[in-house]
Simulated assay, not measured.
Amino acid sequence: MDFLKNYNHEKNIRFSSFKFALIEAQKRNLKNFVETGVARGKVKFFFFTKINWKDGMSTMIFSDYVKFMNGYLTSCDIEKKNIENAKKLINKKNKDFVKFIVDDSLNFLKNYDKEIDFLYLDSLDGHFKQASDHQLKEITIAYKYLHKNSLVLLDDKGSKTNLSIDYMKKNNLRIINETNEQVLLSF
């Protein structure tokens, strides 16, 4: 997984947790990734999208992983502009491995109908009051699509993960990696 070195940047505070999660995903041969909330990047000069390392670059790194594994990434975001920016940020060689959906994550997950190998929940930023409730609703809906080898990665640890973690622990998931920013869980 040589592509990981492209994301090892001093400002990418999520790199270590992404690296751990993807190495674990590869060990489990996980190929079907679902992401709520896309990497947005930064818009410069009204039209130029630039990498925002503090954003973690999830869509980029996941698209590289699924291409490497011959898998598939479905990325959902409620904002069309965020989807447009994420499309610009991913490697053009990865486009056949990614499907972008503009929708509310709860509606998207309700209508999703495939088993999920790797679920990344980052659709509502942690500074919003309702972020914890929203993430809990997401995992409650998505839980039925998980299987015994699935991984769930939660972003914005502490600001929106507490309700979700409690729910998942009650439903037989356990924490297998934890950083200041993210929590990775598995059965």
Rank of each mutant, 00 (worst) to 15 (best):
N162M: 12
M168A: 13
G158A: 09
L146Q: 05
N162W: 04
N162V: 11
R174W: 02
K148F: 06
V183Q: 10
E181Y: 14
D155C: 12
V152L: 13
L151K: 09
V183A: 09
D166R: 14
H147E: 00
L154I: 12
T179E: 06
K148M: 01
L154M: 14
D166M: 07
H147L: 00
L153E: 06
T161P: 10
S164Y: 09
K148A: 07
Y167P: 04
K157G: 00
L153R: 08
L153I: 06
E178D: 07
S150E: 02
L173W: 10
S150C: 03
I176W: 01
G158R: 09
R174Q: 11
N180M: 01
L154W: 05
S164W: 09
K169Q: 13
K169E: 15
L163C: 05
E178F: 00
D166V: 11
K148E: 14
G158M: 09
K148H: 11
E178M: 04
L163D: 12
N177P: 00
V152I: 15
D155E: 13
K169F: 10
N172E: 12
R174H: 12
I175A: 02
L146D: 02
L173D: 01
V152S: 07
E181K: 13
K157D: 07
E178K: 14
S159P: 00
N171Q: 05
Y167E: 03
N171I: 01
K160T: 05
G158K: 10
D155K: 06
L146M: 11
D156E: 12
N162E: 14
S164N: 08
Y167W: 13
K169L: 15
L154S: 11
I176E: 03
T179H: 01
K148V: 01
N177M: 00
Y167D: 04
N171K: 15
G158H: 10
D156C: 09
L151M: 04
K160L: 03
K170Q: 13
K157F: 13
H147Y: 02
D156V: 05
L153Q: 08
Q182K: 13
L146P: 03
L151Q: 06
D166A: 15
G158E: 08
T179S: 15
N162H: 12
L146E: 03
E178C: 01
D156T: 05
L173A: 03
K157E: 10
